[in-house]
């Protein structure tokens, strides 16, 4: 049912694990549907410098998670934002139809991670912030609070 490329990513997934001190984390899915994906990113400048995933799910869930991490490494946040679930499936050479809607959420997890990063750092370059600011942002539990501290203005490059 899966093609060779999907199986290759399933058996030898790339970029599995957690990032130490990640800049953004996104988690999508729920145990009820059987797929949970978490993607963590490290941002340098406006580019994704490192990315790792953790996934509970079927073959397609793991393969798409692996694929999306390969696709976004080195991409700018805006470029990464453009990657759709469909594009991830296409990059894998396609998925069985019944997997397209339930297990193909890796791009959503990535977008959540970018959103998390932008909420924390207000669209500014994390690396430009002082260590103290980073610390403060990191300790702020509610990302909404962090976002309101740093309204999306000025040099904010967020697409809408």
């Amino acid at each position: 049912m899966y093609n060779e490329k999907v199986m290759e990513h399933f058996y030898n997934p790339k970029n599995v694990g957690e990032l130490k001190d990640p800049d953004g984390i996104g988690r999508v899915g729920n145990p009820t549907c059987g797929d949970i994906m978490q993607i963590a990113i490290k941002v340098k400048g406006d580019r994704i410098a490192d990315v790792k995933f953790q996934t509970f799910g079927c073959g397609a869930a793991i393969a798409t998670s692996s694929m999306v991490t390969e696709m976004v490494k080195g991409k700018t946040l805006d470029e990464a934002q453009e990657i759709s679930n469909r594009a991830v499936a296409d990059a894998l050479g396609g998925l069985p139809p019944n997997k397209m809607h339930c297990s193909n959420l890796a791009a959503d997890a990535l977008h959540e991670a970018i959103k998390d990063y932008r909420a924390k750092y207000g669209g500014t370059d994390r690396n430009a912030a002082t260590q103290a600011q980073v610390q403060a942002a990191g300790e702020t539990a509610a990302s909404t609070a962090a976002a309101s501290d740093k309204p999306m203005s000025g040099e904010g490059k967020d697409k809408h």
Partner: peptide, 27 residues
């Protein structure tokens, strides 16, 4: 903490044929 289909696929790689009640395997 693990999902049935991914276990089945890995078992199959090792020559073991089993089944699961996971949604992914039920269609």
């Amino acid at each position: 903490f693990v999902e049935g289909e991914s276990m089945l696929l890995n078992l199959d790689m090792k020559g073991i044929a089993a089944s699961s009640g996971s949604a992914c395997t039920s269609g």
